[in-house]
Design a protein around this nucleic acid. Sequence first.
RNA 1: GGGCGGAUAGCUCAGCUGGGAGAGCACAGCCCUUACAAGGCUGGGGUCACAGGUUCGAUCCCUGUUCCGCCUACCA
Length: 879
Amino acid sequence: MTELDKSYNPRGVEEKWYQDAEPFSIVIPPPNVTGSLHMGHALNTTLQDILVRWKRMAGDNVLWVPGMDHAGIATQNVVERQLASEDVDRHWLGREAFIERVWKWKEEYGGRIIHQLKRLGASCDWSRERFTLDSGLSRAVIEVFVTLYEQGLIYRDKRLINWCPRCHTALSDIEVEHEESEGKLTYITYPLEDGSGEVVVATTRPETMLGDTAVAVHPDDERYEGFIGKKVALPLTGRKIPIVADTAVEREFGTGAVKVTPAHDFNDEAIAKRQEPPLEFVTVIGPDGRMTADAGERYAGMDRYECRKAVIRDLKDAGFLLKQEKYDLSISQCYRCKTVIEPLSALQWYVKVGPLAREAIKAVREGKIRIIPGSWENTYFAWMENINDWCISRQIWWGHRIPAWYCNDCGEVIVSRETPSKCSKCGSAVLRQDEDVLDTWFSSALWPFSTLGWPEVTQELKAYYPTSVLVTGFDIIFFWVARMVMMGIKFMGEVPFRDVYIHALVRDANGQKMSKSKGNVVDPLIMMEKYGTDAFRFTLAAFAAQGRDVRFSEERVEGYRHFVNKLWNASRFILSNAGDMELPQNVEPENLDIGSRWILSRLSATAEEVNTALGDYRFNDAANSVYQFTWHELCDWYIEMAKPVLYGESAGKEAVKGCLLYVLDNTLRLLHPFMPYVTEEIRQTMTAGRKAASGGKMAESIVVADYPRSLPRYGEAEDEMAVIMEAVTGVRTIRGELNLPPSIELKVYIKILTEKTGDILRRNLAYLTKLAKARIAEVGPDVTKPRGAATAVRTFTEVYVPLEGLLNIEMEIDRLKKEETKVEQSIAFLNKKLLNEDFLKRAPKNVVLKEQDKYEECLRRKERIQENMRKLHEAGGRK
RNA sequence: GGGCGGAUAGCUCAGCUGGGAGAGCACAGCCCUUACAAGGCUGGGGUCACAGGUUCGAUCCCUGUUCCGCCUACCA
């Protein structure tokens, strides 16, 4: 360790540690405070954590802000259910006591998901945990609301809204889910009041006829010529309502006549407002989903579905029911409780989103935000371009209360950052605050800057805004992503993130969406319990191919648990054989044998692949690449090659030990973002009580160790290894195909095609012997095939294994025949290609050359196979 | 009604800018070789949904068809 300077120089130190580092920041999609970790969270968190750990190790200045969302409706529902079990109603408790109760609930159960995220290994900056109802974030909410109001971008209006009769609140358009369902189309006869005829209307909601205030037909519909302007007598009520014209009516649908219920249908509301004078609104269904007094004495107080039955019965009895037919329709339901939505007319607060959306579209079009995979851009644009104003008021108690007050005396509306003491217009002190709270998503829209301290201009805001990437699922593109973009641009003057990485939805093994009602939910906690967090995380990463949903399969997790175990055992082996040595910070390739140079070269290639893949958000490619390297290169080949060296006393032993340690260390670091626990555990063991060789700085935790970058490649080592591997697999194939147990030591003759090949093999005879479990009797260009020998014809070599008496000549000939057939197929294929003049003329030169080489190689190979078969025949003949 | 995505080995899925298709699991055979049987070695297995088109050449690009899945929409 070098000594400290005589005096502390903050400037130099701070620059070194901070300013040189690129900032890399992520804000977590805040899970609902009511939430419990599900597969979506697990995937989302794992991917973010991989990026964060990777960037941190790469030396960036990393910030990952965690937190939770207060989840207005969802949380209120949970606590109300709890109250219900105690036979208590929130209204009985009162607003203040109820909110207090929710906070208490939050303290008790709200932290659950945070613990679960930690268990998953999420390396957030936990000291910066935020909650959307924190005082700081609440201040941001008020600031935004008031500013938008002052600029005319927030207003209040009475119109039809989506009302959930169970949650008892208005919802925005996107909080309504549409589900296909089988229903009925009911045809009802409306007689003209003068008795001169009748009009038949069709409806899926017969009960709403009680609130009809018109019948609409298309103005050009000949069937209804002369009807427009007349009146019909509304059955069951006797009310007289007009027949009006509106071009929105589809002549082809039903009878071409539509009953109009302005107070309970969005289309009808539009028709009503277009009429001159506008049609009357008769509200027959109340906020509780029950019929109102205006529905008539007979129906008042009935549940809307009960009423539907009653109306149908009554219509039938009175002779107005013409027919009912099956009809598929989509019903709207509340995204929180699945109750069927009731359109109701109410006074609500809205955000005028048009101008904000235009900027948000521009930001993506101009490339200030990248959406990955790019296919989601269309979805984003389509929604933004057709966006309606956002209803932001909710008739619940848990949330940010709307900062608006109403004067009792003059009715003035006061929107203010602070609680006003008197009316700004008439001076009255009798003010009452709006009862409503804001949509939860209003506060989450501010998350990327509210969590960094806005509206204060903090250091964090300056350093980390805009954030680097937002990692999220497509299901909240509209709820969250789009709105963050709008608010970020509006209030920060800058987009909230540079990249948006949209990951897949985790489905069950059959491709079904996981849901409690279907009972197909896989619990991440159980997966972690059964297979370990590392295996689970690795599975998620390996599954995370772009643009595709994940069909989760438990077998895959099991497979990766094996991988973790493999890594563990490989480490155990290396540490038990080389653990007495200090961990090298680098290795000198000059002193190393071919296997070591080869594995270094492969390590380097792998590091490059992993870094590139992660940079492109190709998590699966990164995971597969490091998996392939660890198992099939490090374990299958290098460790096996190292064994004879480790067990012997050759001059190169120390170098190989160093290389093993070095490669293991790098492998652990490569794997760490994917498998934080096992890599940390192993590396702690490696470094415990030891200093790095050469006195370099050694990170105490792998979390802050350097991430491997691409290092030099050794092409010649990779080429030479190819020759060795070819010879080894040649012997193994013979052994395998002839079912010869490893206990039989084989004697092997290798014919080489070039002297260079021979040189490589002769220098590495020890490896061949060990890896092929064979005695290499002879290597040379003129090696003749012993009688009764099995053969493997390879690219650089021919491998002969004499099997006196053991060899079934017929079987061996069959084997070679099979190979010959394969080569012949290749020859035919290549021949056809090379005889094609167009190919020769138009294909790129290098492609043609490559094909020609392949062709010649095949020809040679075929000859060699045939030569070997001839010899076998001779041997067989003599026998 | 619009839009998007998928169809590749028995199963779950890769395959980046077109140059004879890969992995894991499963399957078959031989092995308890002192890191690992949660392992090693070897092997079998695919008209890349179908039909056209572009191209010297198509799993990949274009068009259409079929079958799935999703998003979105105010046809009562």
